[in-house]
């Protein structure tokens, strides 16, 4: 049964990966500019097969369904690094082959999702906080997540279309961890979110920037990187690091177990860690980089903007996203459906 499944999927996945001196990279869209890929190909002569996924779940399902999907380098978020390393899906990194590992910002190393960074190197990160359109009349007083429950904001909020991100708001408001797996706590968070329902205008994760710029929502949750990008086109956008705590997400590079081009994968990973390359990437995707050397090379107006690089004091309020067991995920999913069906 599984074999047939695997064969079919493997056949489809492997069609494009015939070339020998190559590396197969599977990453989020828009995070690595083409010019950087071309530079890597020119410097090393290694052909890059670059493909993208739209969610960690897609990446994970693809790698699980086919033991050998053919990808060498992948870019999951922190909680999926956690899951995949425990399920023995990642290569234990040989740091001797990653000479630029030292460029990384220690603030994002040795986190609980990958202690000692044995399996992953942090790449970009972000904070899920509150965005505000200053033109919106009632916007001034918002400092923390619990302010969003105010009756003034009926049918105004945009929330990310992601169960764990949305539940983290309520969990934080109630004083729990954003990584809580206790079903009683999740239920309390659900009841809290149900009270927020009249204020919710929409859920969206893939067109956040244009929604901010075009006034389709005046208030809600967004990543600081997206708020920064929206602000370039619309100065009225403000971003709040909630006082009651927030989630920090980190997207990391890792090498798959039994990667078909392991040596090339190391070369690619090390190339991405190089300060000048990471700076180029950071300037292009405008997300906060986990590469300290690259951060120092950025223009003053970016590296000193607290919207992109909040101070250490602010970051200390944040909590890194970690994996939770499938049984708890099922609880989240159940209440997520209940939440959306209750009107």
């Amino acid at each position: 049964m599984k074999i047939i499944f695997s064969l079919i999927l493997f056949f489809l996945a492997s069609l494009s990966f015939a070339e020998e001196n190559s590396v197969n990279v599977y990453a989020w869209p828009g995070v690595i500019p083409n010019s950087v890929i071309q530079q890597f190909e020119k410097e090393t002569g290694i052909k890059v097969n670059f493909s993208t996924f739209d969610s960690n779940e897609t990446l994970y399902a693809k790698l699980r369904a086919t033991k050998n999907a053919g990808y060498d380098v992948i870019e999951p978020s922190s909680y999926y690094i956690d899951r995949m390393r425990r399920q023995n899906m990642l290569e234990k990194l040989d740091k001797n082959k990653l000479s630029y590992f030292k460029n990384l910002n220690p603030e994002f190393l040795n986190q609980s999702y990958d202690p000692h960074n044995e399996y992953s190197t942090p790449f970009i990160w972000g904070v899920t906080g509150i965005f505000i359109n200053k033109n919106y009349p009632h916007s001034a007083a918002i400092k923390k997540w619990s302010d969003l429950w105010n009756k003034n904001y009926t049918d105004q909020l945009m929330l990310l279309n992601d169960a764990r991100e949305v539940f983290s708001i309520a969990l934080k408001t109630l004083g729990y961890s954003a990584n809580d797996a206790n079903s009683d706590h999740i239920k309390k968070a659900y009841l809290k979110l149900k009270e927020l329902n009249p204020n919710i205008k929409l859920f969206n994760s893939d067109a956040v920037i244009s929604i901010l710029i075009d006034d389709d929502a005046n208030l809600g949750m967004a990543w600081n990187g997206d708020a920064f990008k929206a602000k370039q086109e619309k100065a009225q956008i403000e971003f709040v690091y909630p006082e009651d705590g927030f989630v920090i997400w980190v997207d990391n590079f890792a090498i798959t177990k039994n990667a078909p081009h392991r040596e090339n994968a190391y070369k690619f990973l090390n190339f991405i860690l190089r300060a000048d390359v990471a700076q180029k990437i950071a300037l292009d995707n405008l997300y906060p980089t986990a590469n300290r050397a690259a951060q120092n090379l950025l223009p003053e107006k970016i590296k000193n903007d607290p919207l992109v690089y909040p101070s250490h004091a602010i970051l200390k309020r944040g909590e890194f996203q970690t994996d939770i067991p499938d049984s708890a995920l099922a609880v989240y999913e159940k209440y997520w459906e209940e939440l959306k069906m209750s009107e």
Partner: peptide, 12 residues
């Protein structure tokens, strides 16, 4: 959506 979520989010 329900089917999609069961496959991708809940891994069920």
């Amino acid at each position: 959506n329900l089917i999609q979520n069961q496959f991708l989010i809940s891994q069920n």
